[in-house]
């Protein structure tokens, strides 16, 4: 495949014609992604309020003996590291250093998968060893829905970035695609900041 037209992977990857200057100088994709993130704030805001409201009104049981806070702190650290590598990947793309970008992307995907693996382990442990199920108690209901939705966001990010990584071995990845990586990166960082909120307000708060 040597055609010059194939556009790299990306969710909303409509191509900007170079002749078409945008009014603001910001690429369309970036505006759309930030608008999406604004929307996602409401999305997670609603989920988090559901969890916190039920925590407040039903008085959740003491779950500190269920949570493995060291593991979760580890996950948090892992997700933060993935954000660092995401930022480095974008930086490398801007510099025009494909190899660096590739390694950084690989690291992001690795860390993301580690996080997801930890979550899968956590869920499995909760369900099978502790009997905390989504339809067993209201705590299970809101907890799994909130963290699960976040996990699906992570999974989607991993698929997105993996597609880029695979694509980087096949095609003609140009410097203008730094934009696409950057947009994917915005998404990834957002997933990270959602976790930054979830970690204290779902996990740590139970110890307060």
């Amino acid at each position: 495949m040597s055609q010059a037209h194939t556009e790299p992977l990306g969710k909303a990857s409509e191509h900007v014609h170079p002749e078409e200057q945008t009014n603001t100088g910001i690429p369309n994709k970036k505006v759309a992604m930030w608008a999406f993130l604004a929307s996602d704030c409401m999305f997670f805001g609603t989920l988090i309020s559901t969890h916190l409201i039920y925590r407040k009104t039903t008085g959740y049981p003491d779950v500190t003996h269920i949570f493995d806070i060291e593991l979760t702190t580890g996950s948090t650290f892992i997700l933060l590291m993935s954000s660092l590598f995401m930022a480095l990947a974008v930086s490398a793309m801007h510099k025009g250093n494909l190899n660096n970008a590739r390694w950084s992307l690989g690291a992001v995907i690795l860390f993301g998968s580690l996080f997801l693996g930890a979550q899968v382990y956590e869920f499995h442990h909760f369900v099978h060893d502790l009997g905390l199920t989504i339809n067993g108690s209201i705590f299970g209901t809101t907890f799994y829905t909130l963290t699960g939705t976040h996990g699906i966001h992570v999974l989607f990010g991993i698929i997105w970035l993996s597609s880029w990584l695979i694509y980087s071995f096949f095609g003609t990845m140009k410097r203008e695609h730094a934009l696409d990586i950057e947009v994917a990166g915005l998404y990834w960082h957002f997933v990270d900041i959602v976790w930054i909120i979830i970690f204290p307000f779902v996990y740590l708060i139970e110890y307060v």
């Binding site: 999406f36 604004a38 929307s39 409401m42 339809n135």
Partner: peptide
Amino acid sequence: ILAFPAITIALVQLMFDRNFGTF
């Protein structure tokens, strides 16, 4: 973009209640 996420979540919760026995 700011209003629809709320109903998206509400619908997901309703769907879970109806199909997966959540509360």
